[in-house]
Design a protein around this nucleic acid. Structure first.
Length: 288
DNA sequence: CCCCAGTCCTGCGGGC
DNA sequence: TGCCCGCAGGACTGGG
């Protein structure tokens, strides 16, 4: 499931399209079922055809292709989407393509097995409005500790659930949330408004560290094998997971307790009950 | 406003 | 062995 590191790996994998000219945008004829593309493909095509690609950016878990007019084509891979310039895993789930010229690669493609992904074209005004609407928070790798704390501090939600909310911070998903809280030694059920300053610092520090490390390893490929890096190989970070999908195994950190799986907000959470104990503001201060 | 459950989708694996 | 159902979860919607 693409989270920030996997999407960043996709972005880096398609950087050679910068400077290319878009010939046309089209839904891929062999795609099994249509995905949501906005605006309608003919209108979208009119806006991007003939435009030069100026930049390939990322915002949270989205790949953003910016053209000369500053219109932005935003790809949302969600569960099983891939943004590619090389052969997709199958022909049948290819959903969308941008034909290119003046580029070593002829096409930018959006492949998505489950079809939950989306492709949306935003004008500069629409894009700014989207950012201002508050539905998408700042990127997890582009936020200060102060803003990070500020955005979470007042909510009573459980920290694991809050981390997944893209309107607070964009980029962290289910897998990395478990890993971050394990390294920070925070119980995933802790209420945000009851976490201490030092716990927030640890969560922030490990969030940055884990996301950056996972980018170095080109992301995590899980057992379903969907996610591939730019060279169509598996990512490498799945071997570094300490708790995710390791229920029943001995915790690699304390080596005494078995990792547990539980469900929070209908999502699986993995944690070590020994390493990640609930602390109140009071007793964490007393300890310090 | 804030939060949560429900919804979409396909492929895989557990269980019978 | 083969079939079926439940599960995987990112992001949005509707309702309390």
């Amino acid at each position: 499931m693409p989270e920030l590191p996997e999407v960043e790996t996709m972005r880096r994998g398609i950087l050679t399209i910068v400077g290319a000219t878009v010939v046309r945008a089209q839904r891929t004829p062999c795609a099994k079922r249509p995905i949501e593309i906005k605006p309608r493909i003919d209108r979208l095509n009119k806006k991007v055809a003939g435009q030069k690609i100026k930049a390939v950016e990322r915002l949270g878990k989205r790949v953003v292709v910016r053209v000369e007019s500053d219109d932005r084509l935003v790809f949302e891979p969600r569960m099983t989407g891939l943004v590619l310039i090389d052969d997709p895993p199958t022909c049948e789930h290819l959903r969308f393509s941008l034909e290119l010229k003046n580029c070593p690669h002829k096409k930018l493609m959006f492949w998505d097995r489950r079809g939950l992904g989306k492709v949306t074209l935003f004008s500069p005004v629409e894009y700014q409005a989207k950012l201002d609407s508050g539905t998408l928070g700042p990127d997890a790798l582009d936020v200060s500790l102060d803003e990070f704390c500020q955005r979470f501090a007042s909510t009573k939600r459980e920290i694991k659930v809050a981390l997944l909310d893209q309107s607070t911070i964009a980029g962290v998903g289910n897998l990395y949330a478990s890993e971050i809280l394990h390294q920070a030694k925070v119980d995933p059920r802790s209420r945000c408004d009851r976490l201490s300053k030092s716990q927030w610092s640890k969560i922030f520090k490990w969030m940055v560290e884990i996301l950056e490390m996972a980018i170095k390893y080109e992301g995590s490929t899980l057992s379903d094998g969907t996610y591939r890096n730019a060279l169509n190989r598996s990512g490498g970070y799945q071997d570094k997971h300490l708790v995710y999908d390791r229920a029943g195994q001995t915790c690699p950190t304390c080596r005494t307790t078995k990792i547990k799986r539980m469900v929070q907000a209908q999502r699986a959470t993995f944690f070590c009950p020994n390493c990640q104990k609930k602390t109140t503001k009071r007793n964490s201060k007393a300890r310090a």
